[in-house]
Computed example of a mutant assay.
Amino acid sequence: MKPYQLLSIQDCHESLVPIDQSIFFCLEPHPYLAIGAPYDTVSPFYLRQGVLNALYQAQQNLQSIQPTWKLAIFDAYRPVAVQDYMVNYTFQELLRGRGLTETMLSPSILAAIWAEVYTFWAVPSHDPKTPPPHSTGAAIDLTLVDSDKKLIDMGSPIDEISDRSFPEYFYHQAQRLDLTNQKDDYLKVHQHREILDQAMSQAGFQRHPQEWWHFSLGDQLWAWQIEQQTGQSMVAHYGRADLITSQKL
């Protein structure tokens, strides 16, 4: 269990609503649907109403910094079944990338690889008290695109299992370099990440401590981060979205 999962949830019962794809750029084909994730009839481009309202504000914030850029939605609502599928898919991809199979590894090595996965992926818990953030409809993975719908360089792809995914990675790497072109490149990437964070945080979102692309508002992780920052006791506003009365997706 991660620390944020200890916080209580008092769901406000907001409905899941569709993300307006005329305002935001939605990455399609959807990356998880493309590899067979079991969304069934549910769309990944949905959020709770209050979270979506804040996302509209974040888009306005972004355009006050970069008028021609848009938020690019990678993934939003994610049923627990999809979380389970993607956690296992990521584990198998790590093994394949290293030329390994489960049968050749000791339990301790397997546990270490699973620990890598869970550094970035939430446990696909079915317990209503510990929902994966995306299953609440209050978390979103996103990046930036320019006026030509070209992805802005963020230094690493979404979902990469490496230190490059940590929000401050390129800033810290740049500090270790003398004045070189590589240092300038690292600082530019860091600036792009900061632009995304500024647009989102000014709208009330909190960025995941280990993922430059993941933001949430109202879930347990969001509440826990505010507790850590302020010392104020917090309660999450959003639990698992499929446990509330919501409109048919």
Rank of each mutant, 00 (worst) to 15 (best):
I152E: 04
A139V: 02
Q198G: 00
D184Q: 15
L187A: 10
G204M: 10
W213N: 13
Q198S: 14
D219S: 07
H190Q: 14
Q198A: 11
I158C: 12
Y169N: 03
D163E: 12
T136S: 15
A199H: 07
I161P: 02
D185T: 13
Q198T: 15
T180M: 12
Q175K: 08
Q182K: 15
L187S: 09
P167H: 13
F215I: 06
Y171G: 09
K129R: 15
H134C: 01
W222R: 04
F166G: 02
L179T: 15
Q191S: 10
D153G: 02
P209V: 05
H208M: 08
A199K: 09
P132L: 09
Q210P: 00
S156R: 01
Q206E: 15
R193L: 02
Q198K: 14
K129H: 12
D146M: 02
E194L: 07
F205V: 08
A139F: 00
H214V: 03
Q175E: 14
A174I: 05
S147P: 00
N181I: 14
D153V: 02
S147D: 14
P133H: 10
K150R: 11
W222I: 04
K150C: 02
L217D: 07
S165L: 11
I158S: 09
R164E: 10
D153T: 01
N181F: 09
R176M: 13
S135T: 11
K188A: 14
F215R: 13
H172A: 00
A138K: 09
E160G: 01
L144H: 10
P157L: 10
E160S: 12
K188C: 06
